[in-house]
Design a binder for these strands. Structure first.
Length: 892
RNA sequence: GGGCGAUUAGCUCAGUUGGCUAGAGCACUUGGUUUACACCCAAGUUGUCACAGGUUCGAGUCCUGUAUCGCCCACCA
């Protein structure tokens, strides 16, 4: 592999990204096959809606999964990330309807069921792959050969099988019940699809006159138009105000009906007027009251939420909100309206249609979840499944412990048609995998299933269930699930239930809940607000790696992210920094043989700086692996960022220049260490920034044309690498290296304070604090000269000679005091001020420290280690004070 | 009404079983084209850790309460 081609000065992501992804895919690197010699690691993607286009939520979510997949793969697991899309019944159906409408083509009802469904399939063929293509731009290592769609043959078969099984068990049933109805999509919805919003509304108080003319009842409601469906008025049985009226009737205004006053505990004497109008067909509570009292269930609404003929000719066909106005007006005209109050109240909205839903009674299919919930609840309680952050389990428990029957039928066409057939002659219902083969007037159920009724099988249906496939055997259960907390009920809970029920095994061991992404000022990202950046634009501008890294870097665990495109500069700059570090290395010569294991280096000859960087990389390796184990992604990102930028680039590369410029053996060793560290960094970073790391590993000559960084082992702490001489921990040595850097900072600071350009060569004098440091610093003179950009650095145990050199500005550090002799140019006032300030500060700290150490209780109760540290600390402070006082004396 | 979370530098946030003289990035100030990088380097400035109590030798970290903001759940007429 040639490494002589010069790298461009700045990293240019798009060419690199477009080159590698197709290669990776073509070479099958993303594909996992059952291998008994390896441990399996699998993830199923939360299938995006087939109508979807990539947004930042997907970016975060899929980057996290990709990090896990690539990391585990490099750790030696056989991995497979099962991708696919969800048919998203209501969303897709309305999307296609809209498309047809806009194209002026015949609409859904005109086309009829068969033709319309065909149109949806056409649409899916044409546009359904959009998000899948977009995911590739992000670099996701999905096992594309295993891509599935929730309406594929196999998955549809699984859905039918599950339906039949649950029906036979008696969990699934058909019944007349109160459901949520979306007037826009004109279908039933599950409870989870209803979003409650606090809305400003009116509270209407008006009269229901007693039929005998002896007075009236005052009732209060937010929805007067539902009065056409009233079949009773309820009062509390113990309510003294109304007790005597129970059993009598009122004249229902605007109608010619009389309704009975009934006694029911539902009526709360404390609330409103204590009288409640009962509308069994349109209110869940009233429905229950109606059942208790055998009241007529009087439906007054059409499917599009207009009133029906039961409401009389004046209201028939009128929209519910129009009807409300008209009702109010008529009540006022008839002198029945008492008062209208403004109130804030929660109104259920349909997720899709964004209009208030209607609760109404309807014949639908339901699934009783009680038994299914039991083992699923247990699985999280006993820790078989862990939530991260853990607190989400509370939400889960609460929902699962109060789980309601799931309304699973939808009055749309796009989806899995319910495998039930009605015999109109006999009234029989047949439920089975296929239509009943005996003759007869069997008619299949028109309804389809809730989309989530296929999604909840995803972890095993993608692997071929109910067939006992090799994949299922090997990759199930999956390891980790990465998803948003907003679908904990819709999806996560139900998958756990389905896994326990149909596989007899949990579907995943860990669930990581991602942050919710908001804009800079904390608003949710949405198309209508126009605050939702297109990730593809971001990738164009900054690069996929930059986007990935930035979003991980800024994502706090379990909290919302405040995102803005500018934040991607962080990732872009980081990528560029890494690029240039490699570029620098490459300019020094071809790759060395020791880039994997430092094999060309006599370990006993490693310099202090080299040991220092190796110890740091070791630390970073340990921390990164640990952080990923714990799903602390941003921690890992910070760890690597700091390693690369602060430790490697700012210090190590700079100090290694001494040895590189020296040439010969010294240079060879320096190159080996640089290669060794860089190759570790690239591998460490690969899961986060897959493109640039692959590119650089090749550019640097670490890998050949037919190799990939994905097949390299993820770095492990060096203890496992049998390089004992590197790891013979010499804590004093590492401390001395740190102290050296501190000394360098002090020296640079002196320069800056005196307005001397950083590049100007100067002379320094260093008084070391002791023999050991003096010896060390002497040995490091060349390094100091380079780092300080100095002509000369004199290391001594003697005092700086004020007599001959004149007073010089100085700075303390942990290994010595550094002086910048300026031949009389010193600003004495400034120096005195600086030293005075330091002295005051030191005195303050010493006082605090002494107080602490003279506290008997501290000495007796604090751990010995803490006490000793405090003592050492005080010694250090006193020593520093002494040195400051000497400097002050010198100035005088 | 119940539950959960947040409150730390101008902004966005770290701070993992209590040991901090409270950190990072961005922004800001000053200087800099040193043979990797101006997507850069160097040197700086910036804080009653929301408030009030408590536990402790020691609290940003634990406990109680208060305030503000946000999210979720709940059938309220």
């Amino acid at each position: 592999m040639s490494t002589t081609k010069e790298m461009p000065k700045a990293y240019e992501p798009s060419a690199v990204e477009n080159k590698w992804y197709p290669l990776w895919e073509k070479r099958g690197y993303f594909h996992g096959t059952p291998d008994p010699d390896k441990k399996p690691y699998s993830i199923v993607i939360p299938p995006p809606n087939v109508t979807g286009i990539l947004h930042l939520g997907h970016v975060l979510n899929n980057t996290l999964q990709d990090i896990l997949i690539r990391w585990r793969k490099m750790q030696g697991y056989e991995v497979s990330w099962f991708p696919g899309t969800d048919h998203a019944g209501i969303a897709t159906e309305s999307k296609v309807e809209k498309t047809l409408r806009e194209a002026g083509e015949p609409g859904r009802d005109e086309l009829g069921r068969e033709n319309f469904i065909e149109k949806v399939w056409d649409w899916r063929k044409q546009y359904g792959g959009t998000i899948i293509k977009q995911l590739r731009k992000l670099g996701t290592a999905c096992d594309w050969e295993r891509e599935r769609f929730t309406m594929d043959e196999g998955l549809s078969f699984a859905v039918r099988k599950v339906f039949v099984e649950l029906y036979e068990k008696g969990y699934i049933y058909r019944g007349q019940r109160m459901i949520n109805w979306c007037p826009v999509a004109q279908t039933a919805l599950s409870d989870e699809e209803v979003i409650y919003k606090d809305i400003a509304g009116k509270f209407y108080h008006y009269k229901y006159p007693l039929s005998d003319g002896s007075g009236f009842l005052e009732i209060a409601t937010t929805r007067p138009e539902t009065m056409f469906g009233d079949t009773a008025v309820a009062v509390h049985p113990e309510d003294e105000r109304y007790k005597h009226l129970i059993g009598r009737t009122v004249d229902l205004p605007l109608t010619d009906r009389k309704i009975t006053i009934i006694a029911d505990e539902h009526a709360d004497p404390e609330k409103g007027t204590g009288c409640v109008k009962i509308t069994p067909a349109h209110d869940p509570n009233d429905f229950e009251v109606g059942k208790r009292h055998n009241l007529e269930v009087l439906s007054i609404m059409n499917n599009d939420a207009t009133l029906n003929s039961k409401c009389g000719p004046e209201f028939d066909g009128l929209d519910r909100f129009e009807a409300r106005k008209k009702c109010v007006r008529m009540l006022e005209e008839q002198g029945l309206m008492l008062k209208i109050e403004d109130i804030q109240h929660a109104v259920g909205y349909s997720e899709r249609g964004d209009v208030p839903i209607e609760t109404m009674v309807s014949a639908q299919w339901f699934c009783n979840m009680k038994e299914l919930a039991r083992p699923a609840l247990e699985a999280v309680k006993n820790g078989d499944i862990k939530f991260h952050p853990e607190r989400w389990s509370k939400t889960y428990f609460h929902w699962m412990e109060n789980i309601q029957d799931w309304c699973i039928s939808r009055q749309i066409w796009w989806g899995h048609r319910i495998p039930a057939w009605y015999n109109d002659e006999t009234g029989e219902i047949f439920v089975g995998m296929e239509a009943p083969d005996e003759g007869g007037p069997w008619r299949q159920e028109e309804d389809v299933l809730d989309t989530w009724f296929s999604s909840w099988l995803w972890p095993f249906s993608v692997m071929g269930w109910p067939e006992k496939t090799e994949e299922l055997e090997y990759f199930y259960p999956t390891a980790d699930l990465v998803t948003g907390p907003d679908i904990i009920f819709f999806w996560v809970a139900r998958m756990i239930m389905a896994g326990c029920e149909f596989m007899d095994e949990i579907p995943f061991k860990n669930v990581y809940f991602t942050s919710i992404i908001r804009d800079e000022i904390g608003r949710k990202l949405s198309k209508s607000l126009g605050n939702s950046p297109d990730p593809l634009d971001v990738i164009d501008t900054y690069g996929a790696d930059a986007l990935r890294f930035s979003i991980i870097y800024i994502a706090p665990v379990g909290m919302d992210i405040r995102y803005s495109n500018e934040k991607c500069e962080l990732g872009r700059n980081f990528a560029n920094k890494l690029w240039n570090a490699c570029r620098f290395r490459q300019m020094q010569g071809p790759v060395t043989e020791g880039f994997r294991d430092l094999s060309g280096v006599d370990h006993s000859k490693l310099t202090a700086d080299e040991k220092w960087i190796i110890s740091w990389i070791n630390e970073a390796i340990a921390m990164t692996n640990k952080s990923l184990e714990e799903f602390r992604f941003h921690f890992a990102a910070h760890e690597i960022y700091e390693l690369v930028w602060n430790n490697f680039c700012d210090w190590f590369i700079e100090t290694s220049k001494v040895r590189l410029w020296a040439g010969g053996e010294e240079k060879q060793q320096a190159l080996q260490v640089l290669d060794f560290v860089l190759f570790k960094i690239l591998r460490l970073l690969h899961p986060f920034m897959p493109f640039i790391t692959e590119e650089l590993a090749h550019q640097m000559g670490f890998l050949g044309d037919n190799e990939t960084i994905m097949h390299e082992r993820y770095p492990q702490p060096l203890e496992n690498m049998k390089i004992p001489s590197i790891m013979d921990k010499d804590p004093d040595l590492l401390d001395m290296v740190e102290a050296k850097f501190q000394l360098v900072r002090a020296g640079r600071s002196l320069k800056a304070n005196y307005g001397i350009a950083d590049g100007k060569k100067v002379n320094y004098f260093v008084k070391a604090i002791n023999q050991a440091n003096a010896a060390f610093l002497k040995q490091e003179t060349a390094s100091l000269k380079t780092l300080l950009n100095a002509e000369h650095v004199e290391i001594s145990l003697e005092d700086f000679d004020v007599e001959t050199n004149g007073a010089a500005p100085s700075q303390l550090s942990n290994c010595g005091t550094i002086y910048l002799p300026l031949k009389g140019l010193i600003d004495l006032d400034e120096e005195m001020k600086k030293l005075d300030k330091q002295k005051k500060q030191l005195l303050g700290w010493i006082k605090g420290s002494e107080a602490k150490l003279s506290n008997e209780k501290f000495l007796s109760k604090a751990p010995e280690k803490v006490v000793n540290e405090a003592k050492e600390h005080l010694e250090g402070l006193k020593h520093k004070l002494q040195r400051v006082e000497e400097l002050i004396a010198d100035l005088k």
